[in-house]
Structure formats: structure tokens, C-alpha cells
Amino acid sequence: MAALGHTFPFYAGPKPIFPVDTTLAVIITIFLTALVIFIIILPGIRGKTRLFWLFRVVTSLFVGAVILAVNFSSEWSVGQVSANTTYKAFSPERISARVGLQVGLRGVNITLIGTPVQQLNETIDYNEEFNWPLGGAYTEAYAKALEKGLPDPVLYLAEKFTPRSPCGLHNQYRLAGHYASVMLWVSFLCWLLTNVMLSMPVLVYGGHMLLATGIFQLLALLFFSTTTSLTPPCPLRLGTAVLRVHHGPAFWTTLATGLLCMLLGLILAVAHKMQPQRLKAFFNQSAEDPVLEWSPEEGELLTPRYRAVTDSPEPQDIPLSETPSEACCKEEHPKDSDCAL
């Protein structure tokens, strides 16, 4: 830089930003497409069954979409502050900007937006992501950010989450995200089993799996809250302002969905004990168990037919057939009473 006339570091222009996280956009698109397909075939269902079926489909798709979306969301812990802080390294010039921090299960996202956006003859609009998968990927991403010359507020917050930082935020949030993500994947598996069992005549087990779906979501919240509260909060100072972090939308959405799953699971369990017939009618299942019956049709072929147990005929006594010797004896000596002996 001295060879270039003591100019300040060169900053690359802001990279293009999609309005929504691409992973969340894909998840939302998939579930919305499934919902549209189910709505298209809705007119083919008659009577009250149409409303029951629509309620089941919407509820199931909502739960599945939430479990996947929050697992990939970066808004488990969020914070934002307006600050007057330095912008470039080795420069006394300051900017007025909104600094945002979003902590997810797989990394952190840091935003820096100027107020106004155009300051110091530059466009101040940054959105940087730093992930912490297994290994030293976070340290490498932070080193690349230093080489790239990102603004001071972004580098300051990213440095707080490095493994060598005295704040200890890296191990704290990394463990919390790991265990919470595992619980959410188990919850998603329970959600799949719930849909399978509710489509079969085992409704009580479907209710149990729905209850398990909610329990594992609450366990994810418990692991995340417990692990992130093990160490005292680290002060994040940007100029004279202090950035404070609190639970974000993903945390509260998971809590609401987990409680909803537990409530619906308990309702299914109670309804199976109190009103099993109405529960079967709600899921469009017959109240009577079918019995397999065979009947001959054209071409001497046997095809299965189902008939309810209540319509089955009464058992009839069928006389045993006579042995060939007794029949022959009666034909030759019809008046002899001892011919069978």
C-alpha cells in the first residue's frame, strides 16, 4: 500500500445477494408445490371428508417444512444495532451503519448496511457468512476474509467466533448447533413415520409418533439453550454501541411447532380411547375390519371380495360323508341293519 501512495486497502464490490436464503427458498418451494398439487385434487373429494383431508395435509406439510427450514436457518440467535464505527483498516474515517448478527446451527451471518448506503463514495452493503463444519473451515474462512479486506465491523464480529477467541463463542455455539441439528433430524424422521402410520389403520401409533416429533423439537431447543448459556455473554462493542444477541425467529418457530405436535399427538391418543369410531371417520377409514371372501366368477377364476364381519353367514353344520364300504353295503342289503358292522 505504501508503494501505491499510502492508499487504503482495496475492497471488492458487494457480492450479489439473493433476497432469501437459497436453501430456505428451495425447501419452501418444494412444500408449496406439494400443497398446490394437493389443492388441485381437492375437488375430487366429496362431503365433509374434503375439509378433514385438507386440514391433515396442510398441518402435515407445515410441520415438515418448519423442521427442515429451521434446521438450515441462520436465525436461532440474532442481534442488530445502529452504530457509528470505523470502516477501513488504518483509517480514522467513520460511518453510520446497521450491523446485524445471525447465529445458526451451522455458522454465523454478519450484515453491514450503511445509513445511508452511499458513504465515503462507496456502497456499504455487506452480507458475509462464516460456517463451522467439522475441521478448521471457520479459521480458513476468517483468514480469507482478512486477505479480502472486509470492513472492520465484519472482521471484528467474525473474530469473536474464531476458536482462539477468549470469548469462547465458537465451541459454545458449535456444540449447541450440532446437538440441536441431530434432534431436528430425528424429529423429521418421526414426522415421516407419522404420515405413514396415519395412512394405515394404526392411528394410535401415528399419534405416538406425532408426539415424539414434538418432543424431539423441544429437546433441540433444550440443547441449544443449555449449551449457549454455559459461558457468560461476551460483550460485542461497535464504537459506543453494544450488540446484544437474543433468541431469533427460528427458535420461537420451533417452540411453537413442537408444542403443536405434542398437542395434536395427545388429542389423537385421547380420541383413540374415547371416540375411536369418530377418529377413524376423521381419517376416512372404515369402522369395521374387512373379512376376505372368495367367490367364483366368469372363467372359473377366483377373485377376492371383502365383506364385513357383521354380514358373514351363520356357521352351518355339514354332515360327514359316508365311507365307501357303508354306501356299498346299503345298496346291496337295504333291509339289513347290521350291514355296517
Rank of each mutant, 00 (worst) to 15 (best):
T111C: 09
V103T: 07
F72I: 08
Q80R: 11
A89Y: 12
V99L: 12
I95L: 10
N121R: 12
A137H: 14
S74K: 03
S96D: 14
Y126M: 00
Y126A: 01
A83R: 00
S77P: 01
K88I: 11
T139N: 11
S91M: 09
L101K: 01
Q118C: 12
N109R: 15
L112S: 09
T111Q: 12
S82F: 11
A83L: 10
S77N: 15
E122Q: 15
G79W: 06
R94P: 02
W132G: 00
F90W: 07
L112N: 02
Y138G: 03
F90E: 11
Q102S: 11
T85S: 07
A143H: 08
A89T: 11
E128P: 01
S77T: 11
L101F: 06
G135Y: 02
T139Y: 10
T123M: 14
E75R: 15
P92M: 02
E75L: 10
A137L: 09
A143L: 14
Y126Q: 04
F72M: 07
I113E: 05
Y126P: 01
F72R: 06
T139S: 13
E140R: 11
I95G: 00
W76G: 03
T115W: 09
R98A: 09
N84G: 09
E129L: 03
I95Q: 00
N127E: 15
R94Q: 15
S96Q: 11
V99E: 00
A137P: 05
Y87K: 03
G135E: 04
L105I: 04
N84A: 10
W132L: 02
T139M: 12
Q118H: 11
Y138K: 05
G107F: 04
E140I: 06
T139H: 06
S77M: 13
Y87I: 07
L120K: 13
S74T: 07
I110V: 14
W76C: 03
T115I: 10
S82A: 11
